[in-house]
């Protein structure tokens, strides 16, 4: 792994153009680095600027009137006005994005053709194209559905197809913009497991934007945005100790962490890092044994 960060953000400020051309600030002086292979969750309440940040990374923002600072993705300044079309395509190929609504990102009427859409756009020839599609579908566990119509799939399955469509472009980084927000619990679990697998097994850098604390607990690193500013940055364990700061940002602790912290105030010695229900159960059991 290189020493240079894959994504380098420095003093980034961004504002939308509001009525009367007045700026509506969304991001304020944001600086952070993301290394290749990391699994980062960006947490924030509605309007914290987290989605805008993701869109800036992937160049799907039209208006740069009120954009300041630098974003380097793999050394390329993505906010530079003289990016060539090839550079833009290359960037989008390297940084794939999965959106919230699974229906509104599937293009084709057959699953495998949808997965092929990205690589087709990149001009990948046969037989590599076929291999990529099959591999991507296998990675997300949707090979059996290759010839199905997308509208007959469940939300979680559609979202996995959308993920396969990005994987088939062989990106180095994937951004998930609230990709589990519209799913039922089963669909969410399927998608989260897929995301983790991509990070652990394929070494893809994952940036997941969410407001679900449980999802944050599974990441390597949690970045909390509030009102466009960086509030907290650290491992889930570190971030979750700042429960008051989180609450002020409109976020609640994951249930299990909240339970553990409550038990500590009641003098039950529940110790160690508690981010998942399993860790919580074990800690309570240990505390029980000691009593």
């Amino acid at each position: 792994m290189e020493n240079k960060p894959f994504i380098h953000v420095q003093n980034l400020s961004y504002a939308y153009v509001g009525e009367d051309d007045r700026p509506i600030p969304v991001l304020k002086d944001l600086s952070l680095d993301i290394r290749e292979g990391e699994y980062v969750v960006i947490l924030g309440h509605n309007g914290s600027g987290k989605s805008t940040f993701a869109k800036l990374l992937n160049l799907v923002i039209d208006d740069y009137t009120y954009a300041e600072g630098t974003i380097l993705v793999d050394g390329v300044d993505v906010m530079s006005p003289d990016l060539t079309d090839e550079e833009v395509l290359d960037l989008r190929k390297n940084v794939g994005m999965v959106f919230q609504n699974p229906d509104n990102q599937l293009v084709a009427t057959v699953v495998e053709e949808d997965v092929a859409f990205g690589p087709e756009n990149l001009g990948i020839p046969q037989p590599e194209l076929r291999q990529r599609v099959d591999q991507a579908l296998a990675t997300v566990g949707m090979s059996a559905y290759a010839h199905h119509e997308p509208h007959r799939l469940s939300g979680g399955q559609k979202q996995r197809v959308a993920i396969a469509g990005i994987i088939a472009m062989k990106p180095r980084c994937m951004i998930f913009d609230e990709s589990t927000a519209m799913l039922d619990p089963v669909g969410r679990r399927e998608v989260l497991e897929t995301i983790e697998k991509l990070n652990r097994e394929e070494g893809i850098t994952v940036i997941s934007i969410t407001h679900y604390m449980d999802e944050a607990a599974r990441a390597d690193r949690v970045i909390v945005l509030s009102d466009g500013k960086l509030l907290l940055d650290g491992t889930p364990g570190e971030v979750f100790t700042h429960s008051d700061t989180l609450r002020k940002a409109g976020l609640d602790l994951p249930q299990c962490t909240a339970v553990a912290q409550y038990l500590i105030t009641k003098d039950l010695p529940v110790h160690g890092e508690i981010n998942t229900p399993e860790q919580c159960a074990e800690a309570i059991l240990n505390a029980w044994k000691k009593m």
């Binding site: 799907v60 959106f99 509104n104 092929a116 046969q126």
Partner: peptide, 27 residues
């Protein structure tokens, strides 16, 4: 209209840039 907008963004993110230089899965 909202769907169309989101789909357009998603297609752009998947490197769609018209028919030029496109290959096809099904020949």
């Amino acid at each position: 209209f909202r769907r169309a907008d989101e789909l357009a963004t998603a297609m752009e993110c998947r490197c769609y840039h018209g028919g030029e230089g496109r290959t096809k899965l099904r020949i």
